[in-house]
């Protein structure tokens, strides 16, 4: 496959050039090698899944992308430029948003305020303007509120917008977290186990939202998920990791046929 070619998926979406590329990433914690020499790319507009058994290093990989960990070796390229080591808040300003495996919402705030925090990278008014609630600061607040309301409509959480998030059930919290990440209008959205702990119905809803986000906003999505059925259904390409190594990479069908992947998931007889 040519790296820069624009391709069209069977369902008619356009997948562009390489948005982010991980080159020979190695991450160590002391003597433990969590990730060993892994390279893969994420192309514009695709849904890219990272799968693998527990402890394979999937979350560490997302943490590298979002700036929590700095790999000992390897390079992270974003939009054709090598990214210097960055703090997470700087990564956010590049247009990379994420959700967490354990919900990381702001419990003391309402749903609306939580989603509004997603707009912070787009807000520029100074402390004095905000204190006086004048001109630019107020106009900016209203303008961003309008954008947030669109996300709230899109994810169907209008009726809970003024509820404190601490009062919400688990499935809705996950949705609010997705709303917060979406409010940033990211070019790359990282989802760490968006369906963990959900029942079938909630999983279906969430899958639908992920597909809709990708389709309507054209957002590139990289996700980690354990539910194989979901992963194979919604993703365009899949990276398979095991013990910190990459053992497979390709379309769901290719990965499904890969003997190393089958061995990693089903186990292999040792004699």
């Amino acid at each position: 496959m040519n790296d820069t070619a624009v391709t069209t998926t069977p369902d008619g979406r356009t997948i562009g050039g390489v948005l982010m590329e991980m080159k020979h990433i190695t991450l160590r914690f002391g003597g433990v090698e969590a990730i060993k020499d892994i390279s893969f790319d994420i192309r514009e507009g695709e849904i890219r899944a990272i799968i693998g058994p527990n402890g394979a290093g999937k979350s560490s990989m997302l943490n590298i992308i979002s700036g929590f960990y700095v790999p000992q070796e390897g390079e992270v390229w974003f939009r054709g430029v090598k990214r210097p080591p960055m703090k997470p808040f700087q990564v956010a300003k590049l247009g990379i948003a994420r959700t967490f495996q354990n919900i990381a919402l702001f419990d003391g705030m309402s749903v609306l305020d939580n989603v509004m925090t997603g707009r912070l990278t787009h807000m520029s008014s100074g402390l004095f303007g905000q204190a006086l609630w004048w001109g630019h600061a107020q106009a900016e607040e209203v303008e961003n509120r309008a954008k947030v309301e669109r996300i709230i409509d899109f994810l169907e959480i209008q009726n809970i917008r003024k509820t404190p998030v601490a009062r919400l059930p688990y499935g809705l919290k996950k949705r609010v977290e997705l709303a917060r990440a979406l409010a940033a209008e990211p070019s790359l959205l990282l989802l760490d186990e968006p369906m963990a702990g959900m029942n079938v119905e909630e999983k279906e809803d969430m899958s639908r939202f992920i597909l809709d986000v990708n389709d309507e906003f054209g957002t590139t999505i990289a996700l980690i998920e354990h539910d194989m059925g979901v992963v194979m259904d919604i993703s365009d390409r899949v990276v398979v990791m095991d013990y910190g190594k990459k053992i497979g990479d390709g379309t769901p069908d290719e990965v499904r046929a890969n003997q190393d992947v089958i061995d990693a998931y089903l186990g292999v007889a040792h004699d």
């Binding site: 979002s66 929590f68 703090k87 997470p88 808040f89 990564v91 956010a92 300003k93 948003a97 994420r98 967490f100 990381a104 919402l105 702001f106 419990d107 003391g108 705030m109 305020d113 509004m116 925090t117 997603g118 912070l120 990278t121 807000m123 008014s125 402390l127 905000q130 204190a131 006086l132 609630w133 600061a137 900016e140 607040e141 917060r180 990440a181 940033a184």
Partner: peptide, 25 residues
Amino acid sequence: NLTRGASGRKWMAIRDMDIAAEIIG
């Protein structure tokens, strides 16, 4: 005014969960 606007949200985000605050910028 400060606490209902962007500054207040930044502060409350830091208070409630500093890691998540950092990840949203």
